[in-house]
Design a protein around this nucleic acid. Structure first.
Lengths: 129, 129
DNA sequence: CTTGACCTTCCATTGTGCTGGAAGGTTCAG
DNA sequence: CTGAACCTTCCAGCACAATGGAAGGTCAAG
């Protein structure tokens, strides 16, 4: 699988893929005789994980930390466990923050929808901001 | 309330507050006779909203969009409603992404914790990545 | 055997969200 | 009156996550 196909398959660009390799998120891959990168199906899996991590607001460094657990056999289990616990706590806090924000925005929206359009007044809408 | 006090009260810095003013997130505020910025209590409320938005991964532009609803009486209710609906959908998708990521990380962590430390093996830990 | 779509490296630039530092004015305690 | 701790503007620089573009190599179709 060439870099363009992988980009296509994962909804990214060749630029981004080379950048990820440079950044240590993708391992330097096998090269065909012409020097072209040659990816296996596992690259798609890995990029899916990266994409989900990004969508969830993790930094590339944080994603790399978790990925490194997979790539190096060195890391002791306890360290791995601790690392993931921290990551999990972060994610839980982020979810809680999002829920709080959602409530605020939803309340605001409710007020906006309830108001008589003729009497549309920023004061009414935003008393609850 | 001077800028330093506001920074203290909201857990930011004077640098950030001036930057937010420049970026249109805080309105240019009243100045004392000496030219110092003089904030009211509403600034704290607004910064709390900004902080929550940031914690939830919203960009300053997105936060400003919502804030502008409050500051301009011009925006028609329907536009406000639509804007907030989009914002809400985004937030919901983000929460869903986070939950999926949480499940992945939790599964990974469970595997890390379950493994015999003596037999700590990246293969075991990361088969589920 | 050329055209076009790929691929390669390398280096510069963008956008977001700050952060630092210079150079100077203000206020207050001792 | 001096010094510390504030404040002001302005401009530079940083980290992150890409993105753009130049200059050139490769390959399959027509």
């Amino acid at each position: 699988m060439r870099i363009g196909e992988l980009a296509e398959a994962t909804g990214t660009t060749t630029k981004t893929l080379r950048f990820y390799e440079e950044a240590g998120l993708l391992p330097p891959t096998h090269r065909a005789s012409n020097g072209y990168r040659d990816y296996g199906a596992d690259a798609v899996t890995r990029l899916d994980f990266i994409r989900r991590g990004r969508a969830a607001g993790l930094t590339l460094a944080q994603i790399r930390e978790v990925i490194d657990i997979r790539d190096t056999g060195q890391t002791p289990c306890s360290h791995v466990h601790d690392l993931l616990t921290i990551r999990l706590t972060d994610i839980d806090r982020q979810i809680a923050d999002l829920r709080e924000l959602r409530a605020t925005v939803a309340r605001l929206r409710h007020e906006a929808g309830r108001a008589d359009p003729a009497a549309c007044d920023a004061e009414d809408v935003c008393r609850y901001l």
